[in-house]
């Protein structure tokens, strides 16, 4: 007998059993479960991150990179550089000479009292480069200035006498002016200055040749100027300190045609003469007062 035929009745009963069907919301429940599982899988895993990952890993903290670098730079500036500069200023105020050593450069020493380096010619060169030189000092170095006649009148003051300073500050300026004047010959010895700024002094014969070559229209103004130059040179030769080389300065601001006009030259001469008279009067008054005080 076949195995299937042994309990065929039971098989038929089991086959005829009522079929159980899925409920109406079976598919909805299935979709809900699938979505829940996918949502769980999508959840990002929380990773333990270090400091670098905390700063550079997150996009939200991108702004922290430039901010942090700027903060570090500021801290370094205020802690290191600014403190050093404050120390330097404090040392300068105390009057101690300080050595400045810059790698790759010549060792320089600054005299804190005078505020100038001990290397000859260094200060003048620096001053000329920066443009901080006093016009009075320039005047002393050059002998005369073509484009600054007003300063020339001041220059004549020490020769004839000095105006009385109205305030203490003006008095101090005059003192410093004297000090600069006394140091001026030393500075002119610097090779840099001679090389860059100064022209060699002309011999008297050469001067005459040059003066003759000038046009006749300039005679009125040039004649007075020559006289003045002659006087100045004589005064310098007498004092034995006329080592300053003559410098020719041409200012681009002043037109040559204006210089050549006769009206301007006469006006200038008049103003110069007036100023000289005024200075003489003031000097006389000063002399009187000095005598009275004595």
């Amino acid at each position: 007998m076949n195995e299937e035929e042994q309990n065929i009745e039971i098989r038929k009963k089991l086959l005829n059993l009522q079929r159980i069907k899925a409920s109406g919301d079976f598919e909805n429940n299935l979709l809900r479960k699938l979505n829940a599982l996918e949502a769980d899988e999508v959840k990002p895993e929380v990773k333990k991150t270090g400091l670098l990952d905390f700063i550079f890993g997150k996009k939200t903290l991108v702004w922290a990179i430039p901010a942090g670098s700027l903060a570090v730079i500021l801290i370094i500036y205020f802690t290191v550089i600014r403190n050093d500069s404050l120390k330097d200023t404090a040392a300068l105020q105390n009057g101690k000479p300080q050595e400045l050593t810059i790698p790759g450069e010549q060792k320089t020493t600054i005299n804190t009292e005078s505020g100038k380096s001990e290397i000859p010619g260094k200060d003048i060169a620096n001053d000329l480069e920066i443009g901080k030189t006093d016009p009075k000092e320039k005047f002393m170095q050059k002998g005369f200035i073509e484009t600054a006649p007003e300063i020339r009148t001041e220059k004549s003051a020490p020769e004839t006498g000095r105006m009385k300073p109205e305030t203490k500050e003006a008095e101090e300026e005059i003192k410093t002016f004297d000090a600069i004047k006394s140091e001026a010959p030393k500075k002119t010895e610097s090779p840099k200055k001679n090389e860059i700024k100064e022209m060699p002094t002309l011999k008297p014969a050469e001067k005459e040749v040059r003066d003759e070559a000038k046009p006749k229209k300039e005679e009125g103004y040039d004649a007075t100027r020559k006289n003045e130059n002659v006087k100045d040179e004589k005064g310098k030769e007498e004092s034995g300190k006329s080592l300053l080389p003559e410098k020719k300065i041409t200012s681009p601001l002043i037109d040559d045609n204006k210089k050549k006009t006769g009206k301007d030259s006469t006006k200038k001469d008049e103003s110069k003469s007036k100023k000289k008279e005024m200075s003489k009067e003031l000097l006389e008054e000063l002399k009187k007062k000095i005598n009275e005080n004595q």
């Binding site: 069907k21 899925a22 079976f26 598919e27 429940n29 299935l30 479960k33 599982l37």
Partner: peptide, 30 residues
């Protein structure tokens, strides 16, 4: 779905369990 529910109902004897297990089965299949 009907085959799965019927098979699992006969195996477990519980309709609720059969439905849940059928859904789990489809999720595993997917």
């Amino acid at each position: 779905k009907d085959k799965a529910v019927n098979f699992l109902f006969r195996y477990t004897g519980s309709r609720d369990d059969a439905e849940d297990l059928a859904q789990d089965t489809f999720i595993k299949v997917y």
